[in-house]
C-alpha cells in the first residue's frame, strides 16, 4: 500500500517525507518535530529530522523505494562491524556534529567546510537511485544531496588534479570496529579510503549526500555526509567523509588493498564480470522474492558508459 502511494505521488516535485514511512514511523517523526520545533533545529539537524529537497525527476527511477526500515537496518558499514545489523545497533556512537570536511590537494582554493555551511551552499535535490551491493543485493533509495561536481568546481581543481580521494572519519571512540584488538583478524586498514577518476567525480550522477527518505541522513547510512555513485558497487560510495583530496595519481582504495583480486579501483556494476567467488549476473532486490538480472552500470549505462569507452572492463574491474 505504501509502495502504491509512493508511485502515485511520483510526479510531485516536492516529496512529502511521510510517503516513505509506515504509520508508526511517521508518528515518531511527528513526535520529533514537536520536540524540536522548526527553526530551533536549524543549526544542527539530528538524524531523523525532516530535510526539504526538490525531486530531480530527470535523475530519479520510478521503481518503488525500498522500505525505510530495511534501508536503515541492513547496512554494510564496517567501521561499526561486519554484521549488517551492527551499524544500526551501534549508530548512536557516531557524532555527526560538529563536523568539518577538508577539501584540498591540487586545488586553487582549498578550504575546510563546516557541514552546516556546506548544506547552505548548494540547493538540495532528491534523487531516487538504485543501489547495488557487490554481495548481490540491491535497494532503491531516495537520496538527498547536491552534485559532487558543484563542490569540486568551487575549489577549482588545478591541471594536476587527476583523481579524487575520499577519506572517512578515523575515530575509534565513534567507530567501535576501528579499535585495536589482538583478536582482530580483519584485513581492513583504517581510515577507509575511496577514490574516483576526476571525470567520474565530475559526472552529474555523482551525488554528495546528506539525507534520504526526506530526512537528515541516519548515522548508519554515513552521516553527516557521504557520496553516492549509483553505477558502482556500494562500497565505492564512501560514508562519513572528513576529507576530499584532489590528487595526481590513482588512490589505493581500502578494499583494493584488502583484496586486490576481488575489488578493483573502478568496481563498476557489471553482470558480465563476476566476483572471483560468486556470480554478478543477478541480484536480489530487497523486498522482492525473485532475483532480477543485474544491469550493466546498474542501469545507468546511457549516462555513464561513455566515460569508459575503449576500456577493457574485465581488466579494469
Amino acid at each position: 500500500m505504501l509502495i502504491k502511494r509512493a508511485q502515485m505521488f511520483k510526479a510531485s516535485e516536492i516529496t512529502d517525507p511521510t510517503l516513505y514511512f509506515n504509520r508508526r514511523e511517521f508518528m515518531v517523526g511527528a513526535a520529533a518535530l514537536a520536540l524540536f520545533p522548526r527553526g530551533a533545529e536549524a543549526a544542527a539537524p539530528p538524524a531523523g529530522q525532516p530535510l526539504k529537497a526538490t525531486r530531480n525527476t530527470a535523475f530519479s527511477l520510478s521503481d518503488p523505494a525500498t522500505k525505510f526500515e530495511s534501508a536503515t537496518t541492513y547496512n554494510n558499514f564496517y567501521e561499526f562491524g561486519v554484521d549488517k545489523g551492527d551499524p544500526s545497533r551501534l549508530a548512536h556512537t557516531l557524532k555527526p556534529r560538529p563536523w568539518t570536511v577538508q577539501v584540498d590537494g591540487h586545488v586553487a582554493k582549498p578550504k575546510t567546510y563546516d557541514i552546516d555551511e556546506l548544506l547552505k551552499l548548494f540547493p538540495l535535490e532528491e534523487r531516487v537511485y538504485a543501489l547495488r551491493c557487490v554481495e548481490g543485493w540491491s535497494m532503491v533509495i531516495p537520496w538527498i544531496g547536491f552534485p559532487l561536481a558543484s563542490l569540486l568546481k568551487r575549489v577549482e581543481p588545478t591541471g594536476q588534479a587527476k583523481f579524487v580521494e575520499f577519506t572517512t572519519l578515523m575515530d575509534p571512540e565513534q567507530f567501535p570496529a576501528q579499535r585495536k584488538s589482538v583478536l582482530n583478524l580483519s584485513p581492513i586498514e583504517w581510515p577507509y579510503v575511496e577514490g574516483l577518476r576526476l571525470d567520474e567525480a565530475m559526472h552529474p550522477l555523482a551525488l554528495l549526500t546528506v539525507g534520504m527518505y526526506g530526512q537528515v541522513l541516519p548515522n548508519q547510512n554515513g552521516a553527516p555526509i557521504r557520496v553516492v555513485l549509483p553505477w558502482k558497487y556500494g562500497f565505492k560510495s564512501a560514508k562519513s567523509i572528513v576529507r576530499i583530496r584532489l590528487v595526481s595519481s590513482q588512490p589505493k582504495s581500502t578494499w583494493e588493498k584488502a583484496a586486490p583480486n576481488e575489488y578493483g579501483f573502478f568496481s563498476n556494476v557489471n553482470p558480465e564480470v563476476d566476483h572471483p567467488r560468486w556470480s554478478q549476473a543477478s541480484e536480489r532486490r530487497i523486498g522482492e522474492f525473485l532475483r532480477r538480472k543485474t544491469l550493466k552500470f546498474n542501469g545507468y549505462a546511457d549516462q555513464i558508459a561513455s566515460l569508459y569507452a575503449g576500456m577493457d572492463l574485465r581488466k579494469y574491474y
Binding site: Y78, V82, S186, I188, A258, R277, W278
Partner: peptide, 12 residues
Amino acid sequence: LWLAKKGRTDQY
C-alpha cells in the same frame, strides 16, 4: 571459508 566475506571471523 570460501564464502565468508573478508573481515568476518566465525568461519575460522
